[in-house]
């Protein structure tokens, strides 16, 4: 019983982690993060370093110029390129979005700098069978439009859920042929009738957010299942949490 419970806890943690990873990965932010501050001994000042890319976003096959400047560094390297001069430029042509990570060292410490080059890969179907770019594939849909979870007796979108909705809206706006079904679900505590209205409000909260993000309302079908279709039936918080969700699927 304990093992069972633990596996569910792990599953919940995994789901949460995935959601976080996806949330981060789907943010196509193109600004380089600021260089990390280094902690250095007082005797020798650590190096300074910066790296830029121009342009920061390219189409596949185009090239980009990296430009880096350091001071006080004894050795400088860039991941994927190797040892480089302390200052310099280099033209690269990455095949996919790449994080160029520069490390500058001296006896006083290490300083890092990053720049992310985004490569716009044309909408090539991932699987040969999928030749309908506008409609996407099930795998892509599941990766980009993920379930969102709610607190008990709540239909308010959490910050994580709002992030999921943002990336879902981006995907749906890029695939205008997809119609979606939002299913609202509740855990099995409380009353069946009340939970159907609660699930309705959960599904409508997601629909409202998607419409606000530019997805046409007539592409979205909303169904509340209340507690009639349980994902799991254990009387544990992790199971209840998995049941308190909006589930998105392609509406065919």
């Amino acid at each position: 019983m304990l093992a069972h419970r633990t596996s569910f806890l792990n599953k919940a943690a995994l789901v949460a982690t995935l959601a976080l990873l996806t949330a981060a990965g789907c943010h196509k932010k193109q600004a380089a993060p600021p260089p990390a501050a280094a902690t250095a001994p007082a005797t020798i000042a650590p190096p300074t370093a910066s790296i830029t890319a121009d342009p920061m976003a390219i189409d596949l096959g185009q090239s980009v110029v990296l430009n880096w400047r350091t001071s006080n560094a004894t050795s400088v390297s860039i991941d994927g390129i190797g040892e480089v001069p302390v200052n310099g430029t280099q033209t690269v042509s990455p095949s996919s979005s790449t994080n160029f990570h520069l490390v500058a060292k001296n006896d006083g410490g290490t300083t890092e700098a990053n720049v992310r080059v985004t490569v716009r890969v044309p909408e090539v179907p991932a699987a040969p069978a999928d030749n309908n770019g506008a409609a996407g594939s099930d795998a892509q849909f599941q990766a980009n439009v993920q379930d969102i979870f709610f607190a008990y007796d709540s239909y308010d979108l959490s910050p994580q859920a709002a992030t999921s909705i943002t990336s879902a809206a981006a995907y749906l706006n890029a695939h205008p042929a997809i119609k979606i079904l939002i299913g609202g679900y509740c855990d099995d505590r409380g009353s069946a009738e009340y939970n159907i209205t609660l699930g309705e409000n959960r599904a409508n909260a997601a629909k409202t957010a998607l419409v606000a993000a530019g997805v046409a309302g007539d592409r979205i079908r909303v169904v509340s299942y209340g507690k009639e279709k349980q994902f799991c039936t254990e009387q544990t918080e992790s199971c209840w949490q998995q049941n308190r969700r909006d589930q998105f699927s392609i509406d065919r």
């Binding site: 007796d153 409380g190 009353s191 009738e193 009340y194 209205t197 609660l198 309705e200």
Partner: peptide, 27 residues
């Protein structure tokens, strides 16, 4: 705003309805 569900009429008078509302949080 909020769930309103499970109405029940006053069977004696037909003039009142009891129901469940989540307008302030829990039903």
């Amino acid at each position: 705003k909020g769930p309103d569900v499970s109405p029940a009429w006053n069977p004696k008078t037909g003039a009142q309805i009891a129901w469940i509302s989540g307008r302030t949080g829990l039903p």
